[in-house]
Design a protein around this nucleic acid. Structure first.
Lengths: 206, 206
DNA sequence: AATAAATCGGACACACTGTCCGAAGAATCA
DNA sequence: TGATTCTTCGGACAGTGTGTCCGATTTATT
């Protein structure tokens, strides 16, 4: 039984590995040329598998795209989680949150841009995702909500309707990411993050 | 000669009329079901013309989409221009600018969402559009720039690098539009506009 | 009525999607 | 080792959409 189980696990690992392999290729190609301009043939060829094999892993094109975006979001959340736990002061948390997102964005702007652009199509598939701050993801909306409330209770931020405050902060971040993603030569990350953060903080301070 | 000219003009009018007819149908369908989910057949049928006729007016699918977006942007600019000329005080200008954009957005959220989402794909075709604030369009970026500079010279706004100030304002507006466009039941327009405006103003005040 | 232009409708080649299946290969088990 | 099971391969397939083309038909102009 133990052998059987480990065998199954190994298979799952291999399966996941290949899956990720395809996802990585797809993500790159989608980012380079846009979702509609890349055929399943190309993705399969570039990933070194048969086209029919891709369909073993992903039911269809949409699901592959969904997987690409899901993967990106996960990486984003992972990379932010560390800094998030380290800082507890609200203003600093906002700073590192924005810095972390920019960092991730700079890592793969092409696909990030695509993600921002494609969000609609993807979220309409999964009913769990609300419309507000759909892109940035509910987790990040939660983080923003959290840091805002802390800021209010410590007297740093002025009190507002929490949902609205979260929305305003998220809007600014969303906009900043969108703009940065489509800039050919974005300004230095640290500067951009500081600038956006200070602007938001001005809007929040008591 | 005069007759010939008027004849040509009439033809142009008819041509433009039919063109717009197709654009309106396409815009509706694209908005309802997304760009990739609507065939040229459907658009032609719905517009009451033959498919081959559509190809007389638009070289291909992309160009039709481009025309749809162009039309929307034009309508947006037109609807804003009036208010813009009426107000001269910077804070008030910002208010009416944002209000005007929200108004236009509420008018056809589905396609507006699509426009926000599709912007990338479209602007990459026309080299004239810069990366910064690509969506909102250079004209609107110019308006923002203008009102910011006026605000600074009247001592209302604190001095910053004008490009950065414009970018920050634009980002917030862009984000607010994106979020509003994807909300099922957006909060009342006046409230939303006021809220966003105040938030931005707080970031700008001296 | 004659002429010119726009539209129609359908045929065409081409490309891509998603499905299917038998053959070949690799890993696992007895 | 040989038998079994799982995965991948490669190609065939129907279905759908795109963009092009052209002769026939309608509509406007003179």
């Amino acid at each position: 039984m133990a052998a059987r189980k480990s065998s199954d696990n190994l298979k799952e690992v291999i399966r996941d590995f290949r899956r990720d392999q395809v996802i990585d290729v797809a993500r790159r190609l989608f980012g380079e040329r846009g979702t509609t301009e890349v055929s399943m043939d190309e993705i399969a060829a570039e990933a070194g598998v048969a086209r029919s094999t891709v369909y073993v892993y992903f039911a269809n094109r949409d699901e592959l795209l969904r997987a690409c975006l899901q993967r990106m979001l996960n990486q984003l959340l992972e990379s932010i989680a560390v800094d998030w736990e380290r800082d507890t002061e609200p203003a600093q948390r906002l700073r590192t949150l924005i810095g972390g997102m920019f960092e991730r964005l700079d890592d793969n702007p092409a696909f990030f841009r695509l993600a921002l652009v494609t969000q609609e199509a993807v979220t309409q598939g999964s009913a769990a995702v609300g419309s507000e701050l759909a892109l940035i993801g509910l987790e990040i909306a939660g983080m923003i909500d959290n840091l805002y409330l802390e800021g209010v209770s410590s007297g740093l931020f002025r009190p507002m309707e929490p949902d609205r405050a979260t929305s305003l902060i998220g809007q600014q971040i969303y906009g900043a990411m969108s703009v940065r993603a489509s800039e050919l030569i974005p300004i230095p990350r640290a500067d951009a993050a500081a600038e956006v953060t200070e602007f938001i903080l001005r809007g929040l301070f008591a």
